[in-house]
Design a binder for these strands. Structure first.
Lengths: 210, 210, 210, 210
DNA sequence: GATGAATGAGGTTTCATTCAT
DNA sequence: AATGAATGAAACCTCATTCAT
């Protein structure tokens, strides 16, 4: 009945504070940027002493690591949770799946612009390892998309000579551009829809007159 | 017979040093990142006193501005120099133009990975204004691409209902993904070509089986 | 039984250090001058890291402000504490009062030459605001003296047509000259006494033969 | 017929520039303060290279030395030129002399507030030697005043037991206070006159009712 | 003789991290 | 376990002075 029966109150508090620190750090980093955020800023906002921070995280780089992990996990979960590439068998199912994925992404990026800002704008300015993390995430997204397309090819939705890997990554590129483009105008749903439609149309028909 | 007849030797030295500082700053910023680079690092690499730096540039932000301007100008020039959107009238000409542009971009990004690293990875972590500069550049690229497509629609190469603006930006997204993807493997020309071909094919035909 | 019951030990230490910094800054500023004193000089003399300084004061200007406030307060207290202008009713009382005030001033300036050096020699070289602070202090002194004289006029000790305001300020001028004159010979009590007597005599009788 | 017959044109130019530098340095120092004035500020205002400065003066301290000397000389000249202490023999002459001296001082201080600002506000914040220079000047003024009074005693204008030395210095103190008081309101002639009259009256009659 | 480019000592300030309480 | 005072490395920037041209 109780999933965490062995956690003492102190332990629960501790975990809660840890989560709070990560959340606040995420907000500060994505709002002001990693370099412009001081540990004491985070502590102040939480109403804790900034020494306390170091009881939960090694150093400033460490908290960024956790924040990025958290955010990455959210994205990965959203995209892979119930959306196995092989889970659909009909064209209609494929379309629904695509719509569902697009909705998940929207939920993450549009509803929380900080996620994009942090991942895309900040992560790359820390160090090589962090940059690699982003590149890996992008690569993962590209490969995931590619596997969906692979499925589409197998099922005959897509042309047989489709370079699924490259195209998968290209799709991620278009999605990212959409994310970046509407960072500052998250409420312009119409423009976002137009952009989404254009991508969809490009995928299906290309640009050439037929 | 003399291209720079009015420049004294001192003046030439001055301009040369200025250019050297910008070049070195560019290298340091793109290699280690803006925040990880100290003015004294730049000076040391040039073998000048760090006070000398401040005779040529107001402050650290100022040199970044110049570096970014320099790099932006290179990109803008490469893409707009001889490639007026209306300059082609046949499908063949359009293809050649596309190839030419792709080559220019390759020359800039592939041959000099620092350019991408600086513009894409560093610029966004400085401040709002710098981020906006990048967004503006992306926007400019998207609109330029869109205008090429507009021409294609007019000339009947492309379908009449093409959302040129959104598609133009989407293309920039794919190009950027290509740039980012091959940052660490600039010599894998084959993979790059495959990616380029996939984009080209996607544009022309889409992914759907016909 | 306990004068400071609510002050924790940490708080007391903090206040003590703050006071120590002000004191040391005062000594350095008055000995070497504000511009010739580095924050690190103050920290070094206190045996603290110079970063510690910035935990207690905003910046260099801030500590000067506190030092000047401290010193000003000492002067103002010494002169106004128990010496209300209207407190005396007889000529004898007036003389005693004058002697008491002179003694207070002596205690401050003669026993601690730094006070004069800082207020008179340094304050004016910082900025307009600091200069104004000194001028205000002088003005306050002049008006205080004037109010004593006003009382003397009312009680009939002084001539009815006395320009109390101007004369009050003139008296401050003479006192300051005394302070400045004996800065370097604080032990020559005799000369100081002669100077004080001359002022006193000048006030009472003027210089003219009668 | 020609006082400086041997000066070549170059030599005259040189001397002129020297004088210009001193004048400009004076203006900058008295307006912004010694520490807030850069050598390059002075050079810029004169339209010369700042390296040129060092052909005429050893260093920054040196130019201050010359500026102070210049200003001191002006004051000394104004006060001692035609005003020998023994030059008057009647009370009326003494009064005229006093008025003449007061006028000279007014000409210097009131018409050129920078002189006072530099001598009184800046000189003391440089170093011990410069402070001593001001003290010496004050001392000289006090002794000069004292010698005038000595003469007055001899001639019987002043009471025989007058402490001329102390009183002379006290008078300088009152004059300085007048100078300082009206630095910011140089146009309030009426208040200045009132102050001058009060000093005069204090000297002649003291404050006591008779 | 004039110039101004170059220099680097010197100063201020920030902030990640440590550690005694 | 939490705190926040203390630390000092590290960064930015200024400007008096030198010196090659």
């Amino acid at each position: 009945m109780n999933d965490t029966p062995t956690l003492s109150r102190a332990e629960r508090n501790r975990l809660q504070l840890r989560a709070d620190i990560i959340q606040t750090a995420f907000e500060e980093f994505s709002a002001k940027g990693y370099h412009q955020t001081a540990i004491s800023d985070i502590a102040k906002r939480l109403g804790i002493g900034h020494g306390t921070f170091y009881r939960h995280f090694e150093n400033k780089r460490d908290i960024l690591e956790h924040v990025i992990n958290d955010v990455s996990a959210k994205i990965i979960n959203a995209l892979s949770a119930e959306n196995a590439p092989t889970a659909v068998a009909t064209l209609e199912g494929y379309r629904e799946q695509t719509a569902r994925i697009a909705k998940s992404l929207t939920a993450i990026f549009a509803e929380n612009p900080g996620v994009a800002r942090l991942i895309l704008f900040e992560a790359t300015s820390i160090d090589e390892e962090m940059t690699q993390r982003l590149l890996n995430l992008l690569d993962w997204g590209g490969r995931l998309t590619a596997s969906y397309m692979e499925n589409g090819v197998k099922l005959g939705f897509f042309r047989a000579d489709l370079d699924t890997e490259a195209t998968g990554h290209a799709v991620i590129g278009m999605i990212l551009m959409s994310v970046v483009r509407f960072l500052n105008t998250p409420d312009d749903r119409e423009a976002q829809k137009k952009f989404g439609d254009a991508i969809q149309r490009l995928l299906v028909d290309g640009v050439a007159r037929r």
